[in-house]
Computed example of a mutant assay.
Amino acid sequence: MVFKLLRSDVDVDDGTFNGLYSPKIRELAARHWTPVDVAKMASQYLVESSNDKVLDIGAGAGKFCLVGAACTNGRFYGVEQRESLVRISNNLAKKHDIQNVEFIHANIDQVSFEDYDAFYFYNSFYENLDQSCPIDNSILPNRDLYYTYTKYLRDQLQKMPIGTRVVTYWSGWDEIPLSFNMEYTACNGLLNFWRKSI
């Protein structure tokens, strides 16, 4: 029912969507999973043409990709280093017959950015700095890793062609190269829409 509503452009509140997950995953939603309205805004900006490929960098429990796949004609890919979350996400997609989404168990530095048209980033590297609300105990804080991942993302985006689109949420913008212009912003400056111009 949730995905049918999203496909019909009916608003779905986060409590309803998060009800698709187990209690443990629901408990993490406010801190770690993209709100439905944010996911809709971001995915509608990122998908300009049918079958545009959008990569969610650090997909977590898959919420952004699942919402985006339900409310656009794009193809959504979520890369996530926790295999348990990849299983949850792929199972939800299969259960609800969402065919334009795929979740990949990998680290971000194992992904070829050239395979994608647009990117979503909800500051997934920040868990390497802040352990005040961890997803689990499998990732230990590592400041150097935060900077390594951020530099890798910035370098990969720099190699992308003019017109590449990126949406960041709760980001410090360190991963955005100077070749990208912010086209607009929402959610009191927390959600930002970028396009490569040079």
Rank of each mutant, 00 (worst) to 15 (best):
D56L: 09
R75T: 10
F76G: 01
S50H: 05
A93K: 05
G60P: 01
A61R: 01
C65E: 09
L66S: 02
A69W: 00
V54W: 00
S89T: 06
C71M: 09
R82Y: 04
G62F: 02
N100S: 02
N51W: 09
E48M: 14
V79Q: 09
V67G: 02
Q44M: 11
C65F: 10
R82W: 05
R82K: 09
D52L: 12
S43I: 07
E48F: 08
V67R: 03
C71I: 09
Q44K: 15
I98Q: 03
N100D: 06
V101W: 01
K94S: 15
V47I: 00
A61L: 06
F76K: 05
N91D: 14
E80K: 07
V47P: 04
N100T: 03
I98Y: 07
I98S: 04
G78F: 11
Q99I: 13
N91S: 11
S89A: 15
R87T: 14
R75P: 13
G78V: 11
I57M: 15
A42F: 06
I88R: 06
A70E: 03
V79N: 06
A93W: 03
L92K: 00
V79H: 07
Q81C: 15
E48V: 10
N73Y: 05
Y77V: 10
A69T: 03
V67L: 08
L46C: 08
D52E: 07
F64G: 00
R87K: 15
N51C: 14
F76P: 03
K94R: 14
N51K: 15
A61K: 02
N100W: 03
G78P: 09
L85M: 14
